[in-house]
């Protein structure tokens, strides 16, 4: 079954690139342009992976991540942080709020694809959780 990915970024161009790249590889991709929308879609769509930009217009990526990881139902969804910065402090903060991995912008599509595949593979041992997949359609 195709995995579903939610990408949260305020830049539509980036979103469209991520979306196209991942769709080409057979993933089902939905997008959100800000943190609130992202959180809403995470609840309603229950994606298999969330790609989260750090710089968002409303709430910061850290806050979004903290909220996701603080929600018992959403906690298990791996979060891949996407940031233009590669500051040690940012990465540490990301870890603290529970991000599972991060890549820096400008990202290499190869790196993105690699990380996505790796994080999704980690969730594979839970094949019984089919409710998520059906809930999105």
């Amino acid at each position: 079954m195709a995995k579903r990915i939610l990408a949260i970024d305020d830049e539509p161009r980036i979103l469209s690139m991520i979306r196209k790249r991942l769709e080409t590889l057979g993933y089902i991709v939905s997008v959100a342009a800000d943190g609130i929308e992202g959180l809403r879609k995470a609840r309603t769509e229950r994606p298999d992976l969330i790609i989260l930009d750090l710089l968002l217009p409303d709430v910061s990526g850290f806050e979004v991540c903290a909220l996701l990881k603080g929600d018992a139902e959403l906690r298990s969804i791996p979060v891949l942080m996407l940031t233009a910065r590669s500051q040690a402090a940012d990465i540490a903060e990301g870890r603290r709020v529970g991000a599972d991995a991060y890549i820096t912008k400008p990202y290499e599509s190869d790196t993105l694809v690699e990380q996505v595949a790796r994080l999704l593979a980690r969730t594979e041992p839970e094949p019984g959780n089919g409710g998520r997949g059906s809930g999105s359609k």
């Binding site: 196209k20 233009a84 400008p106």
Partner: peptide, 24 residues
């Protein structure tokens, strides 16, 4: 300018790659 310079490049490179590998 870091952010401003990098962001469009991401799009440019990725766009070209998508076209190049036949995804489009």
């Amino acid at each position: 300018a870091s952010h401003e310079l990098r962001t469009p490049l991401t799009t440019i490179v990725e766009g070209i790659k998508l076209a190049e590998d036949g995804s489009l």
